[in-house]
């Protein structure tokens, strides 16, 4: 079991780099695309609303594997046209196809999460901003978006983890991520322990990510913890320790 790790460990780590890279790039692209689309999705104009609805429904209602095959293999059917447009180099490469598919898929999920977040911002806050005479851009920048991301933050973390795990199917189109290397090593050695090492790698990545995300969330919502810390002191305590507290400060 450990012998396998000595022989193939570096390959699995190479795979981990590939997995992280795929996830990070596609989730970041999706992060940039999802916000404007979520705002457009909320507009009353059906010309904006319906195409986005269809897009979200399609990408959330079909398996990621089918989407990946549609982009990677499906583009082959239009090879002459794509070559003419000068896009064939992109669709020929499994790496770019995986990135494109994952980014489109993650955009659909993140868009729905952000839409929920935008909806959950209390209207009173927006009204308060309007009452102060804030223009629309400032309203979004100072009031709506910070609160939206704070609400959506845990769900966005979940989506990133789902993308990380879903990314394992990139191995099916010959990309050598953790799963790709694992399958290759298994086909050479027929040693199941390689699956256990792969499992360990995925568990470590997800656990570290969950911890980091929780720290970030705590930082984003620190104003709420501040209040909770204050409330813990009863009036009696507050008055009796007033002197000490002022000395400390």
């Amino acid at each position: 079991m450990f012998e396998l790790l000595i022989n193939y460990g570096p390959k699995l780590l190479d795979g981990a780099v590939m997995t992280l890279q795929l996830t990070f790039i596609s989730v970041s692209i999706a992060g940039l695309l999802s916000l404007p689309l979520a705002i457009l999705r909320r507009s009353k104009n059906i010309l904006w609303q319906w195409p986005i609805r269809l897009y979200v429904s399609f990408f959330r209602g079909t398996p990621l594997l089918a989407q990946l095959f549609l982009v990677y293999y499906g583009s082959g059917q239009f090879r002459p046209e794509l070559t003419e447009l000068g896009l064939w180099w992109f669709f020929r490469d499994p790496y770019y196809c995986a990135l494109l598919t994952f980014a489109l898929n993650s955009t659909a999920y993140q868009l729905e999460i952000l839409r929920g977040g935008l909806q959950a911002v209390p209207y009173g806050e927006v009204e308060a901003g309007v009452a102060l005479g804030m223009p629309r851009r400032l309203l979004y920048q100072k009031i709506i978006l910070p609160h939206t991301y704070r609400i959506a933050f845990p769900a966005l973390g979940n989506e990133i983890i789902l993308m990380l795990k879903g990314g394992a199917i990139a191995s099916v189109i010959t990309l050598l991520d953790v799963m790709g290397h694992t399958r290759r090593v298994f086909s050479q050695t027929f040693d199941i322990s390689v699956y256990l090492w792969a499992a360990l790698i995925y568990l470590v990545i997800t656990t570290v990510f969950v911890l980091v995300w929780r720290l970030l969330e705590r930082r984003l919502t620190r104003h709420m913890f501040y209040q909770r810390d204050i409330k813990r002191i009863t009036p009696v305590e507050a008055t009796s320790t007033k002197m000490e507290a002022s000395n400390v400060n």
């Binding site: 399609f58 079909t62 398996p63 594997l65 089918a66 095959f69 549609l70």
Partner: peptide, 30 residues
């Protein structure tokens, strides 16, 4: 999914079959 891959291998129409499969999954999910 597998049948679609087999069909693609025989007919060389990947876009048609994978799109059909996506639409079938989509309808089921809806």
């Amino acid at each position: 999914m597998r049948i679609a891959s087999v069909a693609v291998g025989a007919t060389k129409k990947p876009f048609l079959f994978f799109l059909t499969v996506c639409l079938i999954y989509w309808v089921i999910c809806i």
